[in-house]
Amino acid sequence: MRVDDRWYRAQQSAQRGEQAYHDLRERYDDFTERERTQRVSRGHFETLVDRIDATGAPFGAHTLVYRPDGDLLLVRHTGVDLWVLPGGGVESHESYREAAERELREEAGVDATYDGLAILTRLTIESGDYRTTGVLPVFEATTDQSPVPDDPDEEISAARWFTDLPRDTRDRDTLVQWRNRRLRA
């Protein structure tokens, strides 16, 4: 992306991200909304602009998988060295939910019954004076299956059920709040 094009491309992708945000808000109800800003390098910004322009979601779609007892399923992502929700990129022929389901099968080796959208995050991505907006949809689903990762990208080193989330869990506080709200319902 040339410097002259960066502002235009960022604005164009932001429109795609906003459309995705409004589409998800209209389609689903009873979910937690979040806003987050992330500063990235110029090269990473350009990659995320391309992803948002293509799908609206710079980091794909994810699934918050739980068992009736409240345990949550997490996968160990080697690239960030954290426990995370299973999920990843959206392919051009997929809906967000289809991408979340495919990623769950690949990263944790389980199928689940989907209940809807759990968390919708509106992401603002910044690099220098440039910014764009995308979404991070997190669906909720239940299963009692034992996880067995079969990740073709080899990014996932483990998948486990957790009663108490490890300290090195990405977005730990948000997941704990969601679980507490879910168990009270």
Results as ranks from 00 to 15, higher is better:
M1K: 01
V3T: 11
V3G: 06
D4M: 07
D5C: 10
D5W: 05
D5K: 15
W7N: 13
W7Y: 13
W7G: 10
Y8L: 05
R9V: 13
A10W: 10
Q11N: 11
Q11M: 14
S13D: 07
Q15A: 12
G17R: 00
G17W: 02
G17C: 08
E18H: 11
Q19K: 08
Y21F: 14
Y21S: 04
H22P: 09
D23C: 01
L24D: 12
E26L: 08
R27D: 00
R27W: 01
D29C: 06
D30R: 00
F31K: 01
T32K: 12
E33P: 04
R34G: 07
R36W: 09
R36G: 12
T37F: 00
Q38V: 15
Q38P: 00
R39S: 11
S41Q: 06
R42F: 09
H44M: 12
E46M: 09
T47D: 15
V49F: 04
D50Y: 08
R51E: 12
I52H: 00
D53R: 04
G56Y: 00
A57D: 10
P58W: 02
P58Q: 01
F59E: 15
F59H: 13
F59K: 12
T63L: 14
T63S: 15
T63K: 07
L64R: 06
L64T: 14
R67S: 07
P68E: 15
D69S: 07
L73N: 06
V75Q: 11
R76M: 03
R76L: 03
T78K: 04
G79A: 03
V80H: 03
V80F: 07
D81E: 14
D81S: 01
D81N: 04
L82M: 15
L82Y: 14
V84S: 03
P86V: 10
G88E: 14
V90K: 09
S92H: 05
E94M: 08
Y96G: 09
R97Q: 14
A100Q: 06
A100C: 04
E101M: 00
R102E: 08
R102D: 07
E103P: 06
E103V: 01
E103Q: 12
L104P: 02
R105K: 10
E107Q: 15
Y114I: 02
Y114M: 00
D115P: 04
G116D: 07
A118M: 12
A118C: 08
I119K: 10
I119R: 02
L123I: 15
E126P: 05
S127A: 15
G128N: 08
G128K: 11
Y130S: 13
T133G: 06
V135H: 03
V135T: 14
P137F: 04
F139L: 12
A141V: 00
A141P: 11
S146W: 06
P147G: 10
P147Y: 02
P149A: 01
P152R: 04
P152E: 07
E155M: 02
A158S: 05
A159I: 11
A159T: 03
R160V: 12
W161F: 09
W161S: 04
L165K: 12
P166Q: 01
P166N: 06
R167A: 14
T169G: 07
R170K: 12
D171C: 02
R172H: 14
R172D: 08
Q177E: 15
R179G: 08
R179L: 03
R181Y: 05
R182F: 10
R182N: 08
L183I: 07
A185R: 15
